[in-house]
Design a protein around this nucleic acid. Sequence first.
DNA 1: CATTTTTGAATCCTATGGGATTTGCCTATG
DNA 2: CATAGGCAAATCCCATAGGATTCAAAAATG
Lengths: 228, 228
Amino acid sequence: MSRNPSRARPVSRQVLADHVHEAILESLMDGRLEPGAPISIDGTARDLDVSPTPVREALARLEHTGLVVRVALKGYRVAPVFSREDFAHLMDARLVIEPVLTRWTAQRMFPELLAELRKAITDLKTAPRGPSFAEFRDYFEADERFHRLIAENSGNPFMHDAYTALGGQVQRFRLFGGVGITDAEFAIAEHQAVFHALEQGDPAAAAAAMTDHVSKVRQRSIQDAPPG
Amino acid sequence: MSRNPSRARPVSRQVLADHVHEAILESLMDGRLEPGAPISIDGTARDLDVSPTPVREALARLEHTGLVVRVALKGYRVAPVFSREDFAHLMDARLVIEPVLTRWTAQRMFPELLAELRKAITDLKTAPRGPSFAEFRDYFEADERFHRLIAENSGNPFMHDAYTALGGQVQRFRLFGGVGITDAEFAIAEHQAVFHALEQGDPAAAAAAMTDHVSKVRQRSIQDAPPG
DNA sequence: CATTTTTGAATCCTATGGGATTTGCCTATG
DNA sequence: CATAGGCAAATCCCATAGGATTCAAAAATG
């Protein structure tokens, strides 16, 4: 018995399809793959130096998230850009789901979570926000992390699923919607309001602060967003 | 020009993976595959007389729905049965999402939708409800269809996605949660209340009726459900 | 020149094969 | 009897190959 007896296996071994899935998701999330861009199965297989089989499996998983779209016999593409109407719908959905998640999470706060949220807020404030769009990566990442932490800790796995169905789209809009760059100062203050309510363990205030934040994001973005 | 010029192709051709996906989903939804049962890739490939490749793709899609679970190198299984706590969480999530969908749909009612909803209600009332569990298939199907029609017509695709993330689980619970058989009379009346509010085009009443329905389903089921 | 046809490359889709891993069973051992 | 070890079948995982389809650009036609 040369192996660790308490945990015979690291945790759960990964197969190639898992790595491919992560690689594509990363390219999607940090903006390397732009909306509408084709994702060739054989091509990414060559790029990643694997066979097409695990690539097909990874893309099939992603299809269900709405981040990529598939047309039979034609292949996969990154989901197209949002129209202004799509954006409004996305924000309406967030307004239903995120305040509830925030309320529930506020009822279950624990020190480690508070620390992680605090770090996300700090990262949000200190992230460099250069003039170029690519320099917002860290800022967007911290923003996404803050919302995700809240969604993950509501205690309700089904509502978490409902959030993740939206979360990817939100992140994609951050990258390609053209917003989030100009309103950082406002957004940071709104995030802090949510954080403070969570810190106090006040569910009603936390939910209200989240509602306020999302609805203001909606307002600002619909004004600023390019026509579409 | 021998082909129809307005629609060169039927609609969108299907590939084998699509058929496999449908076949597995059907087995899942009508109860042929019980919770926890293994779904062998090579085995279903033999059953359906295809190669394992499209089966892998179909299962990868299903994995993200939560209806099947996958362990690397061990394979896929039908998701395990719900605990009583899981059920409560699922109903809490429905209570957030379904009333909103109902309100929005009530604002967009049109004759065809009303007719389809009316048919679902009729089917619900006339479906045979024998003593055995298998004889509830049609009843469950009509129930699922009623809720799905509302979710599909809210006008917000993102909220629809959030619902479908739950919908499959709800249907699975109908089949294996041991409820829904004893409370049919109550449930039919509650569905009718939702339908009447929709018929009147009264969003607030429709949302309230849906809230009433789901919360009562929750109450009844938690009482009746077997311990777990 | 505009439109259609053809041609070839790229890509999708799926069957096949085989190495790696798991699982069940059978045997051996204490 | 309980446990450990080993073997065989089943299964997962992935690379490969080739037929089917799409796409784009060249060639042909009017």
